[in-house]
């Protein structure tokens, strides 16, 4: 059985799944729109937690939050289910496919065979759509892939029941009820307000202040943990910022695209200007990535090199604080 589902590639998996499921249900919503309304943009440092033996930093909202907020703000209902037993999980998936209902799935990346080996880490918050089954093969629309693909029953079970942080537990989700028309205006404003609130949060680990905290840490790393670890940590920051799914510049470009679209929907010229400014901020994040990669490529880094990238982050922290204050006033 195959559902007539159109696959459209996206930068980020969760936006892409939502956007593709919405299109299937007759609503054209772009990836940046989902990301913006769902307040996807963030900066957050989680002290004490280590990912791949390095500090945990994220440039986006927690897995699942984007869709939940988006759904609430545009007035659609989502059904979510998790399972203890893989057999029940598979039966429920098959049942949905039989009813012509493509579903979103949360999966782990480590056993995702169509990813390059180098990308297969124990990251459990990846999302894809299953839109059919042919014999024992599931038809997969993975939003970050150019084309659709397939997984066997066993392969799919493995990624649905990956273990570790954010274990998916067979998680499936799909929209169940829609409004007559999508009312985007209020939803956009709500999305922007929350992002501004979070990016300006008076907490040292979140938003603009979080960026500043990281810049301070970078200055200390070479002395505190040694050059080798400092470089590994720095590399991890760059990967979180630039890896597949971010659209580049730590999601800042996707957000700039959202502001551009929002400026048209809201007929607000100021948002267009702010979109340009966000693009420039994204460019600076990329400059930071270039500088950081110079450090760990040469391995001969001196302390002033770390200070230089830390300066760049401090500047970004300042600029994002100013930016989100302006954005808050603009809507």
């Amino acid at each position: 059985m195959e559902i007539n589902f159109s696959h459209k590639q996206s930068a980020h998996c969760e936006n892409g799944v939502v956007s593709n499921l919405m299109r299937y249900n007759g609503f054209e919503v772009s990836e940046p729109m989902v990301f913006g309304i769902g307040s996807g943009l963030l900066f957050c440092y989680i002290p004490l937690l280590k990912v791949n033996h390095a500090p945990a930093i994220t440039y986006r909202a927690m897995p699942g939050y984007i869709f939940n907020r988006f759904a609430k703000r545009v007035g659609i209902k989502i059904k979510r289910e998790k399972f203890k037993n893989p057999k029940t999980a598979q039966a429920r998936l098959d049942e949905n496919l039989k009813n012509n209902n493509p579903v979103g799935l949360q999966v782990g990346v480590y056993n995702l065979v169509y990813f390059p080996d180098e990308y297969r880490f124990h990251f459990n918050a990846h999302n894809l759509v299953v839109y059919g089954k042919e014999g024992a093969n599931y038809l997969i629309s993975d939003p970050v892939m150019e084309e659709v693909t397939t997984l066997t029953e066993k392969q799919l079970e493995k990624v649905r029941f990956a273990k570790g942080a954010f274990a998916p537990k067979g998680h499936i989700y799909y929209p169940t009820a829609f409004p007559e028309t999508l009312e985007l205006k209020e939803a956009i404003k709500k999305g922007i307000r929350q992002t501004c609130r979070e990016m300006l949060a008076p907490v040292p680990v979140v938003g603009a202040k979080g960026i500043k905290t990281i810049s301070k840490l970078i200055r200390k790393w070479p002395k505190k943990v040694g050059v080798k670890k400092a470089n590994h940590y720095l590399g991890q920051i760059v990967r979180m910022q630039e890896e597949i799914g971010t659209g580049g510049g730590g999601f800042r470009y996707i957000y700039a695209a959202f502001l551009q679209e929002a400026s048209q929907v809201l007929e607000n010229e100021e948002l267009m200007e702010l979109s340009k400014e966000m693009t420039e901020i994204g460019d600076s994040w990329r400059d930071f990535a270039v500088e950081a990669s110079r450090i760990y490529r040469n391995r001969s880094a001196r302390t002033d090199a770390y200070n230089k990238v830390a300066d760049e982050l401090e500047d970004l922290s300042h600029r994002e604080a100013v930016f989100f204050k302006k954005l808050k006033k603009a809507i």
Binding site: P32, N231, G235, Q236, V238, R239, E242, S293, Y296
Partner: peptide
């Protein structure tokens, strides 16, 4: 100045970060 999407085959600074990892 309008936002569009474009495919990318990769970017060296992040390849270096991944290689390092």
């Amino acid at each position: 100045g309008d936002y569009i999407t474009e495919l990318s085959s990769g970017w060296d600074p992040k390849t270096i970060a991944l290689d390092n990892a």
